[in-house]
């Protein structure tokens, strides 16, 4: 009997997305070699023509579901994978393309394509978790590459990944960023956004854009009220919440309420 344990098999799937999250995987550099040594990358069309069939131990799924074809495909992916991890804002909340959920996507199709009849699309862009059970959602637009390493490392080590679900504010304070909202009156989604980016934008004087989606107990209405006190008009507040994670319910709800208020 061979004493060499079988390496876990990893597959990477893409749905409607920009590929940025997959690229973070390729962008791992030295860690990628370590990952390639620790696991068998069985299916990763963006990286290799070698495409092995399932089942897989871990499926990393990027992108949202926007077509009938993808809605069927994700079921097959789920059946082929022991652990399914959705990665990035598209896969976890529907992505920037979920802005069409607030409008008539048929009208977009008619405006953009010369022959709209060729386009078969779902009315809405929805996250993977609305279609199949997901074992872990890795947030971010794009995901943070060290989160991906941590997630794979923790999964292989059999421990809980150390990925916080608290606010960006805690990261801001740990790196001594001065609060932009309090000290400069700049609207910032940090208080309602999940940590993970290391408070990147506030470190460069920009309010948080909410790339990591709503934090665990996001109180978006209270923040919207603060934006109003700071002088923001309803359309600006609506726009602030309608970006990469517009369809995440906490952001969606407040963006709809602010319009009618």
């Amino acid at each position: 009997m061979s004493s060499e344990p079988t390496r876990p098999r990893i597959a990477v799937f893409k749905f409607a997305s920009c590929d940025g999250c997959q690229l973070s995987l390729l962008d791992l550099e030295d860690d990628l070699l370590a990952i390639a040594g620790a696991v068998e990358i069985a299916y990763f069309p963006e990286a290799s023509r070698r495409m092995l069939k399932g089942p897989y131990d871990i499926a990393l799924v990027e992108g949202s579901i926007t077509t009938h074809h993808d809605a069927n495909l994700i079921q097959k992916v789920r059946r082929s994978a022991r652990t399914l991890i959705s990665i990035g804002a598209c896969a976890t909340s529907g992505g920037i393309q979920a802005l069409r959920n607030f409008a008539d996507s048929g009208e977009y199709v008619r405006m953009v394509y010369a022959k709209p009849d060729f386009i078969s699309t779902l009315r809405m862009s929805t996250p993977i978790g609305e279609h199949v059970p997901v074992d872990f959602e890795l947030r971010g637009c794009p995901i943070q590459k060290n989160h991906l390493v941590e997630l794979i490392t923790a999964t292989l080590a059999g421990r809980k990944p150390a990925i916080p679900t608290s606010s960006v504010c805690l990261e801001c304070k740990r790196r001594s960023n001065v609060c932009l909202m309090v000290a400069a009156g700049t609207p910032c989604l940090g208080p309602v956004t999940q940590a993970g980016c290391g408070a990147l934008c506030p470190a460069y004087g920009r309010g948080c854009y909410g790339c990591f989606g709503p934090m665990e107990s996001a109180n978006a209405p209270s923040l919207a009220e603060r934006f109003t006190i700071l002088g923001a008009q309803p359309p600006e507040i609506e726009r602030a919440f309608r970006t990469y994670n517009a369809w995440a319910w906490q952001f969606r709800k407040v963006s709809e309420e602010v319009r009618t208020s």
């Binding site: 504010c169 805690l170 934090m215 109180n219 209270s222 009220e225």
Partner: peptide
């Protein structure tokens, strides 16, 4: 209803000492 549960108060508090182990 107003609290954002963001943790800013505990971060700026000069006596809040709680830590987590990772």
């Amino acid at each position: 209803r107003r609290c954002l549960a963001c943790g800013n108060c505990t971060s700026v508090c000069p006596t809040c000492f709680c830590v987590n182990i990772e």
